[in-house]
């Protein structure tokens, strides 16, 4: 049995909204310890993963291992229909396995129930990297304000939706996008005096090419947290992470473009 309390505008809802146009299904695994959501776009160029420990999720109840595929569009449409003041609960029960119920209860105790058929997610085969992998395969990381990151992603994506580059040295971070009529460069210098807001940490310079469209899709999600952390590798996908609550986190991976 699973009961997942949701609120319009919470991280779960935000992630679902963000991936609405990228993927049809979110693969959700729930245990007594918490929730793990994974969604991959249809071209397999971007993955988003949401980890939400039970202690950060007020009212979370799960007494067994549950692995389900949630139809994203149905869920988002239902949440959009709800009122901001509604208490929303996603339920998967033993008696109605194969379906999920989304219950909305208003402050006046009026209720609306949506029932969806679960879908096959087939995402178990994606195994995302752990901390050890990130330390060994990623040459650098950059911490920056999420609002600033979102602004850059929007700028890059507006300018050139196909080809962008992130470069980092121990002195600066550079974003670049190629548009049809020109290019855009954004440069951040490492500040000596305040490294709490912006901090570069690199073992060696890294240059990574990617499609800015995908990064822009996820950038809004990261504003749920004040800071984002970018992990950069010469050989592996770009990873962006933000912390949610005490121990929760959102990660996205964007597949690299490789120069011939």
């Amino acid at each position: 049995m699973l009961e997942l309390p949701l609120v319009k505008g919470d991280p779960f809802h935000h992630v679902m909204e963000a991936i609405l146009d990228l993927s049809d299904v979110a693969h959700v695994v729930c245990t007594t310890r918490g929730l793990n959501l994974l969604a991959v776009d249809t071209k397999h160029l971007a993955i988003v993963s949401l980890l939400f420990p039970a202690e950060d999720f007020k009212g979370y109840t799960c007494d067994e291992y549950i692995s389900i595929g949630i139809p994203i569009r149905d869920l988002v449409n239902a949440i959009r229909c709800g009122d901001d003041k509604d208490t929303i609960t996603l339920k998967v029960g033993e008696e109605n396995f194969g379906t999920i119920t989304l219950s909305f209860v208003s402050p006046e105790k009026n209720t609306v129930d949506y029932e969806f058929r679960l879908v096959d997610a087939k995402l178990e085969r994606f195994r995302l990297p752990d901390r050890h992998f990130l330390r060994s395969k990623y040459q650098g990381s950059v911490k920056m304000p999420s609002v600033e990151f979102r602004r850059i992603c929007k700028c890059l994506s507006n300018f050139g939706d196909e080809y962008g580059v992130i470069s980092v040295t121990d002195e600066d971070l550079t974003y670049f996008a190629k548009g049809t009529d020109g290019d855009v460069y954004v440069e951040y210098k490492q500040q000596e005096e305040d490294t709490t807001i912006f901090k570069i940490d690199v073992r060696e310079p890294v240059r990574l090419a990617f499609n800015p469209k995908y990064l822009n899709t996820f950038a809004k999600v990261f504003t749920l947290s004040g800071q984002v952390k970018l992990f950069l590798s010469k050989t592996h996908p770009l990873m962006v992470e933000c912390k949610i609550g005490q121990k929760g986190r959102i990660r996205c991976f964007v597949a690299p473009k490789v120069e011939p």
């Binding site: 991959v40 071209k43 397999h44 160029l45 971007a46 993955i47 085969r125 994606f126 195994r127 995302l128 990297p129 080809y163 090419a209 499609n211 592996h236 996908p237 991976f253 597949a255 690299p256 473009k257 490789v258 120069e259 011939p260």
Partner: peptide
Amino acid sequence: SPTQKTLDRFFHSS
């Protein structure tokens, strides 16, 4: 022009 790689080759567990 650069070649777009997919995520399967990085995170695909057999």
